[in-house]
Amino acid sequence: MSEPSAPSSREAELGAFLRAHRERLTPADVGLPPGRRRRTPGLRREEVAQLAGLSATWVTWLEQGRPVSMSARALTSLAQALRLSRAEHGYLFALAGRPAPRDDAEPAVPPALLASVHAIAGPAYLLDRQWNALAWNAAAADLFVGWLDPGSTERNLMRAMFLSPTLQALVEDWPHRAARLVAEFRVHSLRHAEDPPTRALVEGLRAESAAFRAAWASQDVEERQGGRRGFHHPTRGLLAFEQITMVPPAAPGLMLGMLLPTAG
């Protein structure tokens, strides 16, 4: 490995991050005997290397800000050795210039997040990775006929948007909104595109809906954004809302949608 004349800012930050987290741990934290008296706080570099199954030289060079190329597996082992949280794990990968590790487990839904849906005055709903509705409030059930109302059985937003005539009649400018929804779903589901539930959803809609098939084939991508949303409600007439979409930090695989009434 070549040694640089001066480390880059990111390499220096990576070294400082690793050193700070190493110094926070005690041997007891990781199941090691206390050993001889320590002149500095925390674990020794050799102990971190042992726990991670890495070279002590690599750990030293990383802390010194040298450009050591690390595989995703090695970074994960280092994160586990340092007992990093999920956020810290992702930050380590970002500092190392690596994509964040993929989490195949379905994220748990924090109870406070579920409760927040019902605490919102306007229509609100919580979606999972495949955009199945996990929770929604009474205002959302009243607004989204053909999807969240008591008489509907299809709780997947994508399937309802393309297969429910009632929801299609509700949504103002349905052709544009439906195509936009597909472009947004393509971005949101990218990390889990090969998961069996996601593949089954896409393949099923391609088989059942010509409109979805055409929108999916267009390869359009859009970030999920807010903005005005209009609805032709069967009993309340034309309604307008400002949509806000959030990805909860505590459950990054989920998505919270809220609609705030507007003047029209």
Results as ranks from 00 to 15, higher is better:
residue 60 T to E: 02
residue 116 S to E: 10
residue 50 Q to H: 15
residue 67 P to S: 09
residue 46 E to F: 01
residue 68 V to H: 05
residue 118 H to R: 12
residue 61 W to D: 08
residue 79 A to K: 11
residue 150 P to W: 06
residue 153 T to E: 14
residue 57 T to V: 15
residue 40 T to V: 15
residue 28 A to I: 04
residue 55 S to C: 05
residue 41 P to F: 02
residue 76 T to C: 02
residue 129 R to W: 03
residue 88 E to W: 01
residue 63 E to K: 13
residue 88 E to N: 06
residue 105 A to V: 13
residue 61 W to I: 13
residue 45 R to T: 03
residue 130 Q to N: 08
residue 122 G to Y: 06
residue 92 L to H: 12
residue 30 V to Q: 01
residue 103 D to A: 12
residue 137 N to Y: 01
residue 66 R to H: 14
residue 112 A to K: 03
residue 145 V to H: 05
residue 133 A to K: 06
residue 107 P to S: 02
residue 51 L to H: 04
residue 144 F to G: 01
residue 150 P to D: 05
residue 51 L to R: 11
residue 107 P to D: 06
residue 153 T to K: 08
residue 153 T to W: 02
residue 114 L to S: 06
residue 64 Q to K: 11
residue 57 T to M: 11
residue 151 G to N: 10
residue 63 E to T: 13
residue 141 A to Q: 12
residue 30 V to H: 02
residue 50 Q to D: 08
residue 51 L to I: 09
residue 87 A to N: 11
residue 56 A to M: 08
residue 96 A to C: 09
residue 145 V to Q: 10
residue 87 A to F: 03
residue 152 S to G: 04
residue 142 D to S: 10
residue 137 N to V: 03
residue 151 G to P: 03
residue 65 G to L: 11
residue 143 L to M: 10
residue 65 G to Y: 09
residue 126 L to C: 04
